[in-house]
């Protein structure tokens, strides 16, 4: 078994299982901890929670998003591209097909290229913001910088591999390895905002809406 087969086989399985298992364990752990706080679950309100989430997943849906138009634009496009591209890029579609016989719609190559680059550029934007805006630099740790680099690495390596600028085999291996690390990091770092977001937002929306009759956007 050569290195490509290892990273494409067992390593990818580790990534999927690690991600899914990590998220499930975290959710179960937090659900049991939330029960200890007697008022967390009774406070949760579906309508007010949803109201808040909708305002915050809609671009410019909150006062603070409107106050930072560039950040909002970059950030929304970044998150959208980050989530959509891996699911629908042609290269991955081929892998799904080869491995499991699943086939679905894939992105046109140019769109995938642009979206991949947007993730990389968005990451660079976040890095620059972290290092130049005093209020962000003040709370930025080395780990924060590493995490952003980790997040953009699979996209950068994918783009370079696609363009065939360097040794393609090396790039593909690097792409998979960084992608695996990225997925494994999600449950155990602040990348967990990917799934916690729904709960923190819904809870705050419920406290504001159901308890305090106020808006939180």
């Amino acid at each position: 078994m050569d290195i490509y087969e290892v990273v494409r086989g067992p390593l990818v399985w580790i990534a999927f299982l690690g991600l899914a298992g990590g998220v499930v364990v975290k959710l179960l752990l937090m659900a049991s901890l939330a029960k200890k706080e007697k008022t967390v679950f009774p406070t949760m309100s579906a309508s007010h929670g949803l109201r808040s989430i909708l305002h915050w997943i809609m671009p410019w849906g909150s006062t603070n998003m409107r106050a930072w138009p560039v950040m909002t634009t970059v950030s929304f496009a970044f998150h959208l591209c980050l989530l959509v591209t891996p699911l629908f890029v042609m290269g991955h579609a081929v892998s799904w097909q080869q491995s499991w016989g699943i086939s679905w719609w894939s992105l046109p190559a140019l769109a995938a290229d642009i979206m991949t680059l947007w993730v990389v550029c968005g990451g660079v934007f976040f890095l620059i913001r972290r290092l130049t805006a005093p209020e962000v630099r003040n709370v930025t740790t080395f780990k924060d910088v590493l995490l952003i680099l980790l997040v953009i690495s699979p996209y950068l390596t994918a783009f370079v591999a696609h363009e065939q600028w360097f040794n393609n085999d090396v790039m593909i291996v690097l792409h998979i390895v960084t992608g695996v690390l990225w997925m494994l990091a999600i449950p155990f770092t602040w990348l967990s905002h990917m799934f916690w977001f729904v709960f923190t937002r819904a809870y705050m929306g419920s406290e504001f809406g159901a308890v305090r009759n106020a808006r939180d956007w």
């Binding site: 937090m30 659900a31 901890l33 939330a34 200890k36 706080e37 967390v40 962000v136 709370v139 930025t140 740790t141 924060d144 602040w190 967990s192 905002h193 916690w196 977001f197 709960f199 923190t200 809870y203």
Partner: peptide, 13 residues
């Protein structure tokens, strides 16, 4: 319990 831990984990600084 949950709130403190989730808040600290979620903050992206």
């Amino acid at each position: 319990a949950a709130r403190l831990k989730v808040y600290l984990e979620t903050c992206v600084h």
